[in-house]
Amino acid sequence: MPIVSGISTPIAMESRVADRAPRLTVEQAYEHCARLVRSHYENFTVASRLTPKSKLPHVSAIYAWCRTVDDLGDEAVPDQHDPAEFGQSATRALVTEHRLERLAWWEEELDTAYGGQPAHPVTIALQHTIAEFGIPREPFLRLIHANRMDQGSGRVQNFGDLLHYCEHSANPVGHLYLYLFGYDDAERQRLSDFTCTGLQLTNFWQDVARDYQDRDRIYLPLDDMERFGVNESNIASGIAIDAFRSLLRHECERAMDLFARGAPLVPKLDRSSRLPVALFTRGGTAMLDAIKKRNYDVLSGRPALSSRRKTWLLLSTLLSVKLGMGYRLPARGGKA
């Protein structure tokens, strides 16, 4: 992100104030989570329509917790961090130190959710959700660790390193969702991991330019870049040379393979939890298709799905789930 003195995102700023506010009741805490996600994350409006009403407060609590930890790792900045005063290098060090401190505080708050008195409204709600569904601590800890990993160089050496990152940044979210619907078995978690990793990779390939420009991060494996003849200056130029297009095609095919391996999860879920998972898969493969239609040029512009396309995906997925058709990936090269 650009380092600008005195600017932070709403959630990152809120996390520094809410932990000092008077403790809320559980009901007030859930409402706080619902307001937070509604006001900052437009996709949650759609997700809420797909979620059983009894589960919605718990989904709000987990979503708010996950987004907060991501914002602390990506956006939190100290009050004084002006590059003109401290220098660019020293400023980055200050920002990194501050984010690590805030992540340590958030982990302490998580500890209180498993045997104490949380101070933050999100953690108050989360404590109730944890007790209600018997959710273990490990998925939350992995998400915190992923954000600590983000404070490093912003580079990954190989695809194995990238998968390791996704094991912490993406896969825990799928496990948390499964816990909310009563699934704690290894097989469903394994299939969920394929889907969640596919979604994370798709997001990375969609945002290659933005991640580099705004956060100085490159999630393309460095050894793949070398093998295809791509370097950082190619990404910085904003021009998708043939070598870059070939590289991104290779990475998109890896993501599609992961969606194919995770697709059998959908029929293994009850209908109340099947629709969002099927929609995530269809949305991810549709985005890969959108990237392909741009001939893998994600540098000159960010691929996106039109409102019409999103509506079609929602309605067609809803129909297939209602008819018990499950979800089958298209043939390679077809539409999602």
Rank of each mutant, 00 (worst) to 15 (best):
324 G>Q: 06
320 S>G: 08
303 P>V: 07
98 H>Q: 00
305 L>M: 07
31 E>C: 02
201 L>H: 03
333 G>T: 11
68 T>D: 05
203 N>S: 05
193 D>T: 08
41 Y>Q: 15
271 R>P: 05
304 A>G: 07
274 R>G: 08
16 R>W: 00
277 V>H: 02
25 T>G: 11
187 E>D: 13
9 T>H: 04
152 G>W: 04
324 G>K: 04
240 A>I: 00
160 G>L: 05
6 G>R: 09
171 N>S: 09
262 G>R: 04
249 R>N: 12
45 T>G: 10
246 S>N: 14
291 I>M: 08
298 V>S: 12
76 A>T: 03
11 I>Y: 14
187 E>T: 13
96 T>Y: 05
280 F>S: 10
21 A>T: 04
212 Y>D: 13
125 A>W: 01
54 S>W: 11
261 R>Q: 15
45 T>A: 14
274 R>P: 03
252 C>A: 13
215 R>D: 12
318 L>Y: 09
260 A>F: 02
323 L>S: 02
279 L>F: 14
144 I>M: 07
161 D>F: 03
42 E>S: 11
291 I>E: 09
163 L>F: 09
26 V>T: 15
218 I>S: 10
43 N>F: 04
15 S>Y: 01
191 L>C: 06
246 S>D: 14
89 S>Y: 01
193 D>G: 15
200 Q>A: 14
284 G>D: 05
237 S>M: 00
38 R>I: 01
207 D>H: 05
81 H>L: 02
69 V>S: 11
246 S>H: 09
230 V>A: 01
239 I>E: 15
263 A>T: 15
110 L>Y: 00
74 D>C: 07
124 I>A: 05
221 P>A: 11
195 T>E: 02
253 E>F: 00
24 L>A: 09
80 Q>M: 03
270 D>M: 00
80 Q>C: 00
277 V>K: 06
37 V>M: 07
67 R>A: 12
308 R>N: 02
82 D>Q: 05
177 Y>C: 13
302 R>S: 11
295 N>C: 10
100 L>A: 09
31 E>R: 06
108 E>D: 11
246 S>M: 06
276 P>Y: 07
216 D>M: 05
88 Q>A: 11
136 P>L: 01
279 L>G: 12
31 E>L: 03
102 R>L: 14
1 M>R: 14
71 D>M: 10
120 H>I: 08
50 L>K: 04
111 D>R: 06
210 R>A: 15
310 K>M: 06
211 D>M: 09
234 N>V: 14
158 N>T: 05
254 R>M: 04
32 H>D: 09
96 T>S: 13
191 L>H: 10
301 G>R: 14
249 R>C: 03
261 R>N: 14
267 P>V: 05
93 A>V: 00
279 L>E: 08
268 K>V: 02
243 A>H: 02
2 P>E: 14
